[in-house]
Design a protein around this nucleic acid. Structure first.
Lengths: 212, 212, 212, 212
DNA sequence: CATGAATGAGCATTCATTCAT
DNA sequence: CATGAATGAATGCTCATTCAT
């Protein structure tokens, strides 16, 4: 079946994504992935050529969710720069939380020197999204609506805050024991709201010449 | 003899730290570490019991640099809360940049489900420092000098920004090509100043009721 | 359709022959063969039952070139024994050089203990040709034209010399660097002539009671 | 123990030699070799780096028996060229028969294109011995004791005859059923004598201007 | 306290083959 | 008669660890 085939490849990529997130790339064996995906060990090499090929294809496939909306945002003439930043923060939090396995994996593997090509591919995927944010901030500065902030480091602040919340779940729950109430913190709408509100507040205070 | 032993242990931990940072925990073999440290393969198990034991001891040993100064800071009655935050940002940037191998490793391995005990130990190490920062922020709120901000998420913003700068070096250099000039970005004093200034500015705008 | 099938079978056997010669039986994968033959992986098992079946069928099919002329030679009453030996040497050199891939493969695989049936089949193929040569030599001895030579070992000398030239090409070119001039040594008529002349000379001196 | 260590390496090389001879290089697995040698699978990689490394080291180690005596022979001023050839034939037959596993393996693997370095190493090993024989024949020609024969092809005749007898044992026994009497043909002194006598006779008739 | 040798489990990958269509 | 997908066993090799000294 056509659908069957697609399913197997996707099953493998799904299993890979969650196992890579939980155990890291090297900490996850192909056997592990195939067992979770319910397919034969040889299928990974049959479909993806190698474990590394699977990783690359998985990143490419899963990264697609990030593309699209951001470009529209940039072109929208109706929105003010601060509204754009507000929206971009919302999109980032929603997407990175929804795809936290992917976020975790990419964040972690991006800083390794092994597998240079994968490394660069991931940097490029992120770079694309991040440079849009940079353009929006610089647009705000040009329009004199924003202070002359360090746009590159603003990106690290936004992205770093969200990534940190995902990777340091345990520490976060030690700091705020209330968070243990949520069965799944990142799917809890009130937590998402809290994070979005915090980040928007931080950025508004930082970017706008007169704080609200 | 006594010093010899200590040296070898330290050599192993040094080699482990930099290799774990570059290749990850599972991506680094005990043989690799021992070869870099110039010691016999059996030494790791001899001294540390296991590879995992080495990791744990290495984290404990290398984490010591984080302790000390922060407690003094909290007790210092002369400093205002905002001055404390400024100082703490300076300390964090300097230390995390100086010990970026350690930061990278801990950030990455902290989010793995395997090796639960290590996981918890690392969270505890970080928690200790982070909760001091939290106390300072809440002290500022109590003294009506700060807005009623989300202190837990402020910690993620500070820590996440710095960690992001360390782990996403490649993407950062794609955003700001000027950074390629530095041979070693994280040792470059002007870059450190830039980061500290950005973070202090972000936090001051966010925390203080009237922006400077 | 009918021709298509035959073509595909032959394509597979052709690819198999040259790959087995270059890499050995075990060193060549069914996928390799099918890729070179431009057919589906499953075709080998479909047509030949198994890789071993392909090997057997290929040997049988390719061995046909050896049959035919030799029987006529034996029956020819006009030719003297020494003329028959001369001719047989010519035929062997021409054929073994022209089909050096086959010669190489058979020579190599004949001495393996695995795949007993293949082993015996190949020995039988060769035995058939070699026993004709033996009969001719013994005819010469009977007719008192030849010395009482060791006919079995004469066969090894003729066959072994030619086979050695094919399998030790590299060493041969080290001994006589002039041979590097030929792009394809075994297709070079002057080299063939040289080998035929050498072998005829060796055998004439050995067989004939008075050397020419 | 010092002796123990040497023993294990040698045990592995011994097992490798006989299995490579029986099944070919690719047809023999490292597990197979280690099982026969009574050692752990990892020892091959520990001692020899890889299967290929084992092959190379084994060839180098086992080839040593060929060196030594031949050089002495060349220098011996007392012996006439024909006596030298007689002796060299005796030495070759004795050694190649005694080390028929090695002979078989090298003959077979020498003609493969994979593993180029091994290929060249083996050609060099053989070349060394064969070029000595060439020098002796050319010395005989220079001294007008031999005909102007093709010295390069004479080498193929001598080496090829012996190699053929080793690799085509089955066909040989079909030609001369008497040979089935010997439990181990190649260790049977009468067969060795027969082969030596044949080859000396062939070469004497071919080389000497007046046949005996 | 130190080490080279050794181990067995596990790794990613490839194999010849078979299956469903 | 033909095929792309799938399989389980085997491949060479590396791993963290242990052992004998």
């Amino acid at each position: 079946m056509q659908t069957e085939k697609v399913d197997k490849k996707e099953q493998i990529m799904d299993a890979a994504q969650s196992l890579f997130a939980a155990q890291g790339y090297e900490g996850t064996s192909v056997r592990d992935i195939c067992q979770h995906a319910g397919v034969n060990v040889a299928m990974v090499n049959y479909y993806f050529g190698s474990k590394e090929g699977l990783f690359e294809k998985m990143v490419e496939h899963k990264a697609s969710f990030m593309r699209g909306k951001l470009e529209e945002l940039l072109k929208d003439q109706e929105l003010t720069p601060v509204e754009k930043v507000d929206r971009i923060i919302g999109i980032f939090v929603e997407r990175m939380f929804s795809h936290r396995d992917f976020t975790l994996t990419v964040t972690r593997e991006m800083s390794k020197s092994k597998r240079q090509s994968v490394h660069e591919m991931m940097a490029a995927v992120f770079f694309r999204n991040m440079s849009l944010l940079k353009q929006i901030i610089e647009e705000g500065i040009r329009k004199k609506q924003f202070r002359k902030v360090d746009s590159d480091l603003c990106i690290s602040t936004i992205h770093g805050t969200i990534a940190n919340l995902i990777s340091a779940e345990l520490m976060l729950k030690m700091l705020d024991p209330d968070l243990n109430r949520s069965v799944n913190l990142y799917e809890d709408p009130s937590f998402r709201k809290r994070v979005i509100h915090h980040l928007r507040s931080v950025m508004r205070h930082h970017l706008l010449k007169e704080s609200n």
